[in-house]
Design a protein around this nucleic acid. Sequence first.
DNA 1: CTTCGTTCCTGGAAGC
DNA 2: TGCTTCCAGGAACGAA
Length: 273
Amino acid sequence: MPEMPEVEQVRKTLAPHITGKKITAVEVRLPRLIKFPSAEEFAGRLTGRTITEVGRRGKYLVLHTDSGSRLIVHLRMTGALIAQSSDKPEPPYAKIKFTLSDGVIMWFTDIRTFGTLYLVTDGDYYIEGYETLGPEPLSGDFTPAYLQPLAAGSRRAIKSFILDQTVIAGLGNIYADECLALAGINPMRAAGSLSAEEIDALCRAVNTVIAQGIKNRGTTFRDYKDGEGKSGENQKYLLVYGRGGKPCKSCGRPLATAKVGGRGTTYCEFCQK
DNA sequence: CTTCGTTCCTGGAAGC
DNA sequence: TGCTTCCAGGAACGAA
């Protein structure tokens, strides 16, 4: 599942293949993926535009064009953007084809078709989830001083709290479990029950876990691939995610599984208090 | 206001 | 073996 480190890896691997290239054709095969404007307008407005910059915010990719418009893409669970030569066979589950000026094709592929794409020009559309994103991990805005007062009043489970994109931009189910494991905090604890020391440890854990995910080029558990169709390596270093029943890497006792906020959760009952 | 459950979708695994 | 059922999960949405 693409979370912040995976989306960052897609950004890095996509950018050299598409930056400075002109979009010469757009073929939308599943119009409902385009949330704004209509699929026809989306294709029409993008055709002839040059991609000037490939950015990211939270789990959103932001492709800037020379007209000032921005193509904003959320991969959700199984979406992927892959740049490859036009003489290569098209990838499976191809839903949108962006033909670029130099014989490169950028494919949007998606198995479960939850992905969303927007073309925003001069703020003509308000993407709720994008506009309300909280601070980025590893940024100067993400600090214990920011997190503490937000958590203070909250009775939500700390895992649900850190999964909330308006609190922190970019954490998903895998990294949320990893952060809480590293910080030694039980995922079911109420956010407001964390001490200042625990908030501090959690902030550090989020930064450590995300930095490690980026360094390892993302976590490939099922479907995630980067902008060149390659897998990541971070799955080899996970502390808890996907390891239910296996020994805790800290105390050796079997890891527990539970549902927290409707999400599958793995943690150590003994090391995470 | 906050918090929680449901929904979208497909493929793969588990169960009978 | 082959069918059915369940589960994976990001985030919008509606309900409590």
